[in-house]
């Protein structure tokens, strides 16, 4: 049952990312990515991380991509973009990416042989993560909140149109 869910979610995720690359329209790419992120959240839930799965859906699929789609709709692009003029750069990029893939898979095989099975520790529910966040990772937590405020203020200041007065 778990294997079936894993295969379904992985194939859907990889297919969605492939669709995002192939489609020419930006809005469809963003929608494919919503599907990919939801499948990733499902994979997180399979890996005993329910809190992170729900946080991924709320923040990534539910807020960041809505922001993307907002910007795509405000940037008034013509339907689709003209395809790339120099075709050989695309082919070279694909070949190099496949080389990188093979390298990473070989590195994975040699690095993971002692760790073939997984230890079933505790599931990552909210109270345990909260406990860790407020004791061991307190400094990153507080600094991240300052970072978010800086990003908010920065985004508003950047986009605000200066009235000529």
């Amino acid at each position: 049952m778990e294997l079936f869910l894993f295969i379904l979610l992985s194939i859907l995720c990889i297919g969605a990312v492939l669709g995002m690359i192939i489609v020419n329209n930006q809005a469809y790419s963003a929608l494919f990515l919503v599907l990919a992120f939801s499948c990733t959240a499902g994979l997180f839930a399979l890996l005993d991380a329910p809190f992170i799965a729900v946080v991924q859906i709320i923040i990534y699929a539910g807020a960041i991509l809505v922001l993307f789609i907002f910007v795509i709709m405000m940037v008034d692009i013509k339907e689709g973009l003209t395809p790339e003029k120099k075709k050989w750069t695309m082919a070279l990029a694909c070949i190099l990416a496949v080389v990188l893939l093979i390298e990473l898979l070989v590195a994975l095989k040699s690095a993971l042989s002692p760790m073939a099975t997984s230890v079933s520790g505790q599931a990552g529910n909210a109270s345990e993560i909260g406990h860790l966040l407020f004791t061991k990772y307190l400094y990153p937590f507080e600094i991240t909140s300052v970072l978010i405020i800086a990003a908010m203020v920065g985004a508003i200041v950047l986009v605000k149109k200066k009235d000529s007065e």
Partner: peptide
């Protein structure tokens, strides 16, 4: 999982600023 929590948060902040720059 804590590190992923921070990565998601920082990615949200970065997406906001990146989209502002794109605009």
């Amino acid at each position: 999982q804590i590190i992923v929590f921070f990565v998601i948060t920082v990615a949200a902040a970065e997406a906001a600023i990146g989209l502002a720059i794109i605009l």
